[in-house]
Simulated assay, not measured.
Amino acid sequence: MLIGVPKEIKNHEYRIGMTPAGVRELVAHGHSVMVETNGGAAIGLSDEAYRTAGAEIVLTADEIFERADMIVKVKEPQPQECRMLRDGQILFTYLHLAPDPTQTELLVNSNAVAIAYETVTDARGGLPLLAPMSEVAGRMSIQAGAHALEKAQGGNGTLLGGVPGVAPAKVVVIGGGVVGTNAARMALGLGADVTILDRSLDRLKELDNLYGPALKTLYSTTDALEKCVLEADLIVGAVLIPGAAAPKLVTRDMLKQMKDGAVLVDVAIDQGGCFETSRATTHQEPTYEIDGVVHYCVANMPGGVARTSTFALTNATLPYVLQLADKGYQQALKDNPHLRNGLNVHRGKVTYQAVAQDLGYDYQSAEQALGL
């Protein structure tokens, strides 16, 4: 199979879909890989490193989309990339379709086979291709939030960990999954007063066993959430419903009652955000202010630490890329039900139920699409 790896074109996105080590693995399996020139240059992965691994370096993304059997990316394809996709071509990347009707329409019209990293599952019910970026985003949420709390950035001027004789910042993490756990870990490490809310008692018990009395755990009700939000200096939104739009948990009314200069970091923004006042921002202009509250809603947070993120992502995606390349997408999806869960769009049909439901498309199951 011929695999194409284009340079990412989203604002301030420096990650790349495959490292030279990943290229070398694919070549060892008898496949060919094309990488767009300077695709990894910003994070120290030179064209020469890719050539040494066995890749062909090409000058334009147009050539990659024109020739490749499978496109491996990081972020969702931008409109001009969607329009370059061919009938039956495989796209393997993050998609986050539920809050993005334009991308969904373009992918449906392309007749391509779009497999989303974020809905691939594993035998334990986890999301193995979302997890590494969730770990990065969870940890970044705290350093981003700490910076936004500085007075010059619009925050209330509170140091996250305080100092002797001065109380630390109050950090509230909504959601106890991978993002939330990593956010809590970082905030605790900096000495903050941390509360995490979740609706799974089992998960709250796990977190309590993990961090002991240093971490406050609360069952998430509307009342508990509202009380925490109004007292918080920094709130991290870490809620996920796989493949679906995130629920709006912090309302505009709550926002109006929050501390002036408090900070919201919405890690769920890729799925539409879990704060009513959230809208996607970029690393170039990461924050905005509403009702005296600073919002940080960067839609590609891990892109800020692109080198770490690229290596972490390739470690997770490479086994699945190899399955798709070695067997062809149809056999790979038939053989692996967890990879099959990643199929979101197949030759003009939406094949992920939450996306179809949120955006009003007729739903065709992946099994139907593959003739199983």
Rank of each mutant, 00 (worst) to 15 (best):
V74W: 11
N11M: 01
G165P: 00
G177I: 09
L130V: 07
A137W: 03
Y352N: 13
D193K: 14
R24H: 10
K248C: 03
D122M: 06
K205A: 13
L359I: 00
A332P: 11
R347K: 15
R185Q: 15
G30M: 08
N156C: 13
T314Y: 06
L59V: 02
K227G: 01
H283T: 04
A137H: 01
T119R: 06
G348S: 05
M1T: 08
G212L: 02
A224H: 13
P286Y: 07
A299V: 12
G292S: 12
N209L: 14
P164T: 15
P168R: 08
V72R: 14
I290S: 05
L264C: 06
G30E: 07
G180W: 09
R83Y: 02
R185N: 12
T60E: 08
L207P: 10
K10P: 00
V263D: 07
Y352M: 05
E276I: 01
V229N: 03
H338K: 04
L210M: 15
R124H: 10
V23Y: 08
L322C: 12
L130K: 05
G191A: 09
T93I: 02
P99F: 11
P99L: 08
E206T: 14
G273M: 02
K10N: 06
G157Q: 03
A238V: 02
A354R: 15
P132Q: 02
L255Q: 14
F311A: 07
G126K: 05
G17M: 01
G304M: 07
G44S: 05
G155M: 03
L26F: 05
G176Q: 07
A114M: 10
L215C: 12
L333V: 10
K170H: 12
I16Q: 03
G360R: 12
A268F: 02
Q89M: 12
Q331W: 01
Q331S: 10
V172R: 08
Q364I: 09
P242C: 03
C228N: 11
F65S: 09
I16F: 04
K259P: 08
A262Q: 05
A68F: 11
N315T: 14
D223H: 12
E63G: 00
L343N: 12
A187S: 12
A354N: 12
G88I: 06
T52C: 01
G126I: 01
V113Y: 11
L26Q: 06
V166N: 00
Q364S: 15
S220N: 13
V166D: 03
L59Y: 03
K151T: 02
A214N: 14
G39I: 02
L59W: 01
M34R: 10
E63R: 15
A123R: 15
M84I: 04
L230E: 13
Q257I: 00
V294M: 06
Q353G: 01
V58Y: 13
P128L: 04
G212C: 02
P247E: 12
D193Q: 15
G154C: 04
A131C: 00
Q368S: 14
T181Y: 12
R83I: 03
L240M: 09
G165Y: 07
F275S: 03
P286S: 10
Q364E: 14
V172E: 04
G145E: 04
G165T: 09
L324C: 11
L333Y: 10
R67G: 01
D69N: 15
A369Q: 07
V267N: 07
P99T: 10
Y14C: 00
M18F: 02
L230D: 00
